[in-house]
Amino acid sequence: MTAPPIEIKDLHKYFGELEVLRGISTTIQTGEVVCLLGPSGSGKSTLLRCVNLLEQPTSGTILIEGEDITDEDADVDGLRTRIGMVFQQFNLFPHLTVLRNLRIAQRKVLGRDTAEATRIAEEMLARVGLSDKVNEHPSRLSGGQQQRVAIARALCMNPDMMLFDEPTSALDPELIGEVLDVMRELADDGMTMLVVTHEMGFALQVADRVIFMDGGVIVEEGPPNEVLRNPQHERTKRFLRAIEIED
């Protein structure tokens, strides 16, 4: 049996005196789509960023495909090529065209030659429906298109799993759908995904499991239908009510 893509055991993270993650444990299985929700400041981004070591965990262990990444000798760069990350602000490289955005890490990290990197870049662009933007500069794309390029860029590394940190929060409402569609297709293709999002529709339809976090702990988790429609904890109920009112 192969090890699960992500296994988190008793993870703690401090920023100075502030304990942001207070003992998180969960396992994400191959092909599973997990949505992470919780109020602002509950530690969702920090948890996600610990998984690819953009933040250094203070204590606890994270196993990626069975490999302990909190170990000092862990190959951090190699690990990161196996974990795609999509940011709220897209973070495309503004000085490079779309094609070069998609090629640069393939060339410099995976050592692919230009022809192969170009071929894979074009394939991934087609997957997110942006083949016609290959030579565009990021600044000339809409937010939705930029985010789809960012997803394609991550896919070019052939990651085994993907992390999304509020991928649609910076988008105008009419552009959210196109990004969620791409994510839904990824999920259908069997990608393992950990998604911080407040898109309830997406969570209900696509997620296999929902984790609700508050104050640096997992308050409750389970199938989306149960957690979102019939929450057991007062904090979850309050949060979901607040979100409904917002919508």
Binding site: N52, L54, D77, G78, R80, T81, I83, G84, M85, F87, Q89, N91, L92, F93, I104, A105, K108, V109, L110, A150, R153, A154, M157
Partner: peptide, 11 residues
């Protein structure tokens, strides 16, 4: 975010 995006791609 530029450094973070680059590092998260394994650079």
């Amino acid at each position: 975010g530029q450094m973070e995006a680059a590092r998260s791609l394994g650079m």
